[in-house]
Simulated assay, not measured.
Amino acid sequence: MKNPKLYAVSLDLAFKPEESWRLALEEALEPFGAALVSFETDGGKGWHMEVIGEEKPSAAAVKAALKPFAGLTPVIAPVPDKDWLAESRKGLAPLKMGPFFVHGEHDRGKAPKNVIPLEIDAGMAFGTGRHETTSGCVKALLRLAKSHKFKRPLDIGTGTGILAFAAWHLFKVPVTAGDNDKDAVRVARENAAINGLRKAIRIVTSDGYRAKAIRAGGPYDLVTANILANPLISLAPDLARHLARNGRAVLSGLLVAQEKDVIAAHRAVGLELDFRIRQNDWSVLVLKKAARPPAGKK
């Protein structure tokens, strides 16, 4: 099957941008493609950013989107026809996260003894375990597993499905997972089948908690959501409605600098901080129902 024609909008910076500036720039580029990469170059002195999609972006639209970032010169060009799956696998070594051995298809059968292998091929979805938010969520789940026996987990914004798979292995109960991106749902289902979890993990297309399967399945005593700060804030009332009284919510995808806003939004709907995990600039917040309801609510 012939690969579809792809186009890229790329930027090469002669400096390493500040975190907030970089995130804003990534957000400006995201609408022009389906996959975005962003990484250091020149030994940490520079930065490369690229978004790839099937439609050629309008140069005028790209220029307008980058207007707040003065002095940038984006390059819009066709992407060379390559086996991108094979390219992405080069140098992608297996990853050890607690008891989990996360690897791609190219390392199948190479897991050492006494680990739980998880084969994760991301495709167009987020969550290979290599980002601080994913590994931080796994650390939070491992900590919770020492004192809790969850019976009804839910993963919002499941991406590759990695957190749902980790929850199943830790608690050995059926897991519901949802994502608003159909490509992510497809990838997560494929990964579930590869890992022998097709019947254990129910994966649905859902914008937050809106899918009937998610609304009908609650309340949940464990909710994981590794998305972004703004969606977490928007979904706070839904989380409060769907979280069981003694449940825990593991939230990430936010920077340490965004903790205050995310916690405040959840405190307003009756949730409070249980504990947090910080890894570099990123944060994982574990929330629970507050002992007392917020002012004005009973």
Rank of each mutant, 00 (worst) to 15 (best):
L144K: 02
E40Y: 09
K96A: 15
R186P: 01
G33Y: 00
D238P: 00
P94N: 13
G123F: 05
G296M: 08
G196N: 10
V173G: 01
G161I: 14
L285T: 01
F150N: 01
A65R: 00
A240F: 05
L235V: 05
A77W: 09
V269W: 08
L285K: 00
H242G: 07
V37K: 10
E19V: 15
S10F: 10
A229W: 06
E18V: 05
K182Y: 01
F15N: 00
E272T: 15
V204H: 08
E272Q: 15
L25I: 12
R143P: 04
A125N: 05
W47S: 00
G129S: 13
A290I: 09
K67N: 03
E40M: 10
I277G: 00
R248P: 04
K298Y: 06
W47M: 05
S20K: 13
G247N: 09
F150E: 09
K172E: 04
D183A: 05
E105D: 14
N195V: 14
F32C: 01
D179Y: 02
G161Q: 11
M49F: 03
L271P: 08
K67Y: 00
E55M: 02
A122C: 14
F165Q: 14
D261Q: 10
P293R: 00
L287W: 14
F165P: 05
A268Q: 14
N191E: 13
K298S: 08
V187A: 12
L232H: 02
K260T: 12
G71S: 06
G161H: 11
F101N: 12
L13I: 11
Q258N: 00
L66Y: 04
N280L: 15
R130I: 10
P174W: 06
L29P: 01
D238L: 12
G109M: 07
T73Q: 10
L285V: 10
T176I: 09
T158N: 03
T176W: 11
E259C: 09
G109R: 10
G129I: 15
V138P: 07
N3M: 03
L142V: 14
A188W: 12
A122I: 14
L92C: 08
G127T: 09
A14M: 07
V138T: 14
D81V: 08
D155A: 10
G129T: 14
L285M: 00
V223I: 15
